[in-house]
């Protein structure tokens, strides 16, 4: 099995400067009773976008035209809290293709990269500059580890394996299954 390779992402920026945006904000727990993947775009940042009665709140997220893609420029420690993979699923279903931040929370980063949601962790100065470019187009070159936005160039380092998975479409499950002999040997050694 191979995933669709992701070499570059080009889209307008959507900025959310708050630090420590947790996965409960990205998708509230009451939407986690699903047993399916997909169709979670409506739940993405739900309580930021909607009142309790379902009417729309005045939030910039509601201004993104349906079906359009964006690159999320988010604050420090984005995706902290719950390990729910529904968070990157919801972000992707909503239309986000990448998250640019100074640091993504560990489990969120791992989950996002497994779902083709590119995570770019960049220095504070470049991050501050990109925060001023809401709505303006930027391009992420995944292989080169580079973001180009206007006259700003920011560098990011992806884990080598995660990068290979993205740009070559490597399927991690297949990669682990291919090590079946090593796993069997480990089990046999322990049983001995």
């Amino acid at each position: 099995m191979r995933n669709e390779p992701i070499l570059t992402v080009t889209a307008p920026a959507f900025t959310l400067p708050d630090a420590n945006v947790d996965t409960d904000q990205i998708i509230p727990a009451r939407f986690l009773t699903t047993t399916e993947r997909g169709a979670l775009g409506g739940a993405c940042f739900h309580d930021w976008r909607f009142h309790g009665d379902g009417s729309k709140k005045d939030h910039r997220l509601n201004d993104i035209p349906h079906g359009e893609v964006r690159i999320l420029v988010a604050g420090h420690n984005f995706g902290c809290g719950s390990s729910r993979e529904h968070a990157p699923w919801a972000l992707k279903d909503f239309g986000f293709r990448a998250v640019v931040t100074t640091r993504a929370a560990d489990i969120f980063r791992s989950n996002a990269l497994k779902n083709g949601l590119v995570i770019c962790e960049i220095d504070e100065a470049s991050h501050a500059a990109l925060m001023d470019r809401d709505g303006l187009e930027m391009t992420i070159d995944v292989a080169a580890g580079q973001i180009i936005a206007g006259n700003i160039t920011a560098r990011f380092v992806l884990d080598r394996f995660a990068r290979t998975c993205l740009i070559e479409g490597v399927d991690p499950m297949g990669y682990i299954l291919a090590q079946g002999e090593a796993i069997a040997r480990f089990e046999a050694d322990r049983a001995a």
Binding site: S83, D106, I107, P172, M173, I176, Q179
Partner: peptide
């Protein structure tokens, strides 16, 4: 430690996880 659903699948199928040493 906590893992995502894709990794739950990895562990179910292989009893293993890909991890960088923290």
């Amino acid at each position: 430690f906590g893992i995502g659903t894709t990794e739950v699948g990895h562990v179910l199928a292989t009893q293993c996880l890909l991890q960088r040493k923290p």
